[in-house]
């Protein structure tokens, strides 16, 4: 244990107090700009927005199995990553499932923690390899003990007159009950 001085050692407390106040204020002012510039730039990612995408053509309706078995497709679109712009590049994947003339599109990302969900070995649903969530073919949670807070995220699909299947690709926030698009 060391003795701690209770008064300023030179015996002129008042002047010392003003000097101390000044030293802290002026020193703080000097450090403000660099620290502020650093903090602002470190929090710059909060300003970033996810790309707002249009429908992109994924495949032809005729290649989708008529019996409702899902098939995985890669979505190709332009991608801006930081300073790089990738033209026509894979940006994500979907499961497409045909029922009659309508098509359902599911994002492959597990809504629990973001793993890539597989088609279950039985072919009768989807299974997450990470925390074992189970989903039915329509994307809903099939096993109540699954940690996933919601079913697989469905995406907007259009089957157009040219026979093409068009998907509006989006990613969603994971780990919550509501399906909130990443913006």
């Amino acid at each position: 244990m060391t003795e701690v001085p209770t008064t300023s050692p030179d015996g002129r407390p008042r002047r010392s107090f003003l000097a101390a106040l000044g030293a802290v204020a002026v020193g703080g002012l000097a450090a403000f700009a660099p620290v502020a510039a650093a903090v602002v730039s470190v929090f710059d990612p909060l300003r970033k927005r996810s790309a707002d995408r249009d429908f992109v053509r994924v495949t032809r309706l005729s290649v989708l199995p008529a019996d409702g078995r899902p098939r995985k497709f890669t979505i190709t679109d332009d991608l801006v990553d930081g300073w790089t712009t990738y033209q026509d590049s894979p940006i994500g994947a979907v499961y497409l499932r045909r029922e009659g003339d309508s098509v359902q599109a599911l994002n492959v990302v597990c809504p629990h923690a973001g793993c890539f969900v597989n088609i279950a070995p039985s072919g009768e649903g989807f299974a997450c390899p990470c925390h074992k969530s189970q989903f039915a073919l329509d994307g809903s949670v099939s096993d109540p003990s699954s940690p996933a807070p919601r079913g697989l995220d469905s995406l907007n699909v259009e089957v157009r007159d040219d026979g093409g299947v068009y998907v509006r690709f989006q990613n969603f926030r994971t780990g919550q009950k509501d399906k909130t698009p990443l913006v």
């Binding site: 010392s16 000097a19 101390a20 000044g22 030293a23 802290v24 002026v26 020193g27 002012l29 000097a30 450090a31």
Partner: peptide, 14 residues
């Protein structure tokens, strides 16, 4: 050093 010299140092840093 504290606070007389620190005050001067702070002003110089500013």
């Amino acid at each position: 050093f504290w606070p007389e010299q620190v005050l001067r140092d702070s002003v110089a840093s500013l």
